[in-house]
Write a protein that binds this DNA or RNA. Structure first.
Lengths: 224, 224
DNA sequence: TTCGTGAGTAGAACAGTGTTCGTGTCCGAC
DNA sequence: GTCGGACACGAACACTGTTCTACTCACGAA
C-alpha cells in the first residue's frame, strides 16, 4: 500500500460519511420495485429505464440484474405490486355488479396513478399470481351473482382487457383539448362524415369516468 | 479528376447496373408505408425499425425523415392504411348487430395479420381520418338500429378499445401452451384459489375467436 | 487467526434504438 | 445553360437493455 492509496482510502472514507448510509443498505427487489414505481408515478412509464432506477439507487444498471431477470420481469413485478393493492370485497349476491365495478375502478385508479403502466399490464403474462388473485376474487363475485362459470370467466377476461385499454388511452391523452377536438371534427367534410360532424359534441361527451362505468355496465347488465 | 477517380466512377457505374433501378425510384410515403407494413407482417411490430425500413429501401434511416415526421407518425400511417382496408357495410336495420360484429372482426383480422401493430393502434390519435371513417360507419349502423347517438358513441369507443386490447394480447401469446397453463393453475394452493383451481379448464376455454365474439355480443345485446 | 468462497456490486463495453446536422447530388424550371 | 431548391444520405449524438469481467467484502471452515 503506497501513501497515495492510503490517501485515496482516506478520501473515500470521508466521502463515505455522507453516502455510506445510502450505499450500505443492500439492493433488494423491494427497493428496486419501490423506486421504479415512484419513478413511474412521477415521470410516467416512458421514464422507467434501468439506468434511471439504478441511478436513483446510487449505482449502475448492471447491479439490478442480480435481483431482476429483465426489464420485462421488472414490469411484471410492478403490475404485481399494483395488483396487490386491490382489496377484494366479500361477495354480496344483492350487489355483486356494483362490487365488480368497484374492483375494476380500483384497478383503473391504480393504473392511472402510474401513467402509462397499463401498457405493461397488457404485456404481462396471465399466469401472474397477483393478477390471478384478482381473477379469483372477481370470479367469486360472479358466482355469487349466479352467473355460469364459463360466462363469468369470459366476461372477466373482457373486463380486464377493457380496463387496461381504457387506462392506456386515457393516461396518454393528458386532459385532451376537447375544444380543439371539436374544432377539428367541425372541419370534416359533411358529405363524407355526416354523423360524426352532426354529433361531434356527443362523440366527445363524458365527464370523468362516465364512459368507463358505462362500458362496464354494458358488459355486466346483459348477464344473470 | 485523376485516373483513379475515373476508375472509381467506372466501378460505380458498373455496380449501378444492378442497384440503379432500385435507387432510381424515389422514396415516397407510400413506399415507406408499404415496406413497413410488410416488415411488420413478416417479423412483428418489434422488428419495425427506421433502420430496417430504410435498409429494405436501400438507403439510410435519415432519408425517411424527409417524408415522415416521426416513428410515431409512421405508426399512425400504418394503422391508417390498415383502417382503409375495412369495408363498411350498408346499414341494414334488421341485422345491424351482425354488421357491427363483422366490422370489428375485419379490424381484428387486420391487426392480427400484422402482429403487435395493435399497440400502435392504442397510441394513435383518435382524430385520425381513417379511423374516423370507421367510427362514422359504425355510427351509421347503430343509428340504423335505433340506438341513441350518445349511447352509440360510447359503445363504439368501448368496442374499439376492446378490439385493440384483444389483438395486442392474442398476438403476443403465439398459440399459448394451454396444457402448460392448465398445469400451472393446477399447482396453485386450493385454499387461496378455490374457484380458479376448480374451474381451470373453463378459464382457459374458448376456441378460435369465441371469446372475442362473446365479448362483442356482451356489449351489443344490452342495447336497443 | 487465517484463508478461501461465493454472493453482491459495479465499471466498461456492445449492439441496438430514434433523431438531427451538414454535406452532397441531381432534377426541373427559368 | 445555368441556377436553385428539393431530395438523399453518411456520420454522429444521446439514449436504450444487456452482458462480461473484474472486484469487494462478509461469513464460515480449518
Amino acid at each position: 500500500m503506497t501513501r497515495n492509496s492510503s490517501r485515496e482510502e482516506w478520501a473515500d472514507q470521508i466521502a463515505a460519511l455522507d453516502s455510506a448510509p445510502a450505499r450500505k443498505e443492500p439492493i433488494t427487489v423491494g427497493r428496486i420495485v419501490g423506486t421504479a414505481l415512484e419513478l413511474v408515478r412521477a415521470e410516467g412509464f416512458d421514464a422507467l429505464t434501468m439506468r434511471r432506477v439504478a441511478a436513483a439507487l446510487g449505482t449502475g444498471p448492471a447491479s439490478l440484474y442480480a435481483h431482476v431477470r429483465n426489464k420485462a420481469d421488472l414490469d411484471d413485478l410492478l403490475i404485481g405490486t399494483l395488483s396487490r393493492n386491490i382489496t377484494l370485497p366479500e361477495p354480496d349476491a344483492r350487489e355483486w355488479r356494483a362490487q365488480v365495478v368497484d374492483v375494476c375502478g380500483q384497478l383503473r385508479d391504480q393504473f392511472l396513478r402510474h401513467p402509462g403502466i397499463a401498457r405493461a399490464a397488457l404485456n404481462a403474462p396471465p399466469a401472474n399470481l397477483d393478477t390471478l388473485r384478482i381473477t379469483e376474487g372477481l370470479l367469486a363475485l360472479f358466482v355469487a351473482g349466479g352467473v355460469a362459470v364459463r360466462t363469468a370467466a369470459w366476461t372477466i377476461d373482457a373486463l380486464l382487457l377493457y380496463v387496461s385499454a381504457y387506462t392506456v388511452e386515457s393516461s396518454l391523452r393528458g386532459s385532451v383539448d376537447r375544444d380543439e377536438m371539436l374544432a377539428r371534427l367541425g372541419m370534416l367534410p359533411v358529405n363524407r362524415f355526416p354523423l360524426v360532424v352532426e354529433h361531434a359534441s356527443e362523440l366527445n361527451s363524458g365527464e370523468g369516468h362516465e364512459r368507463f362505468e358505462f362500458a362496464l355496465r354494458l358488459m355486466l347488465d346483459g348477464l344473470g
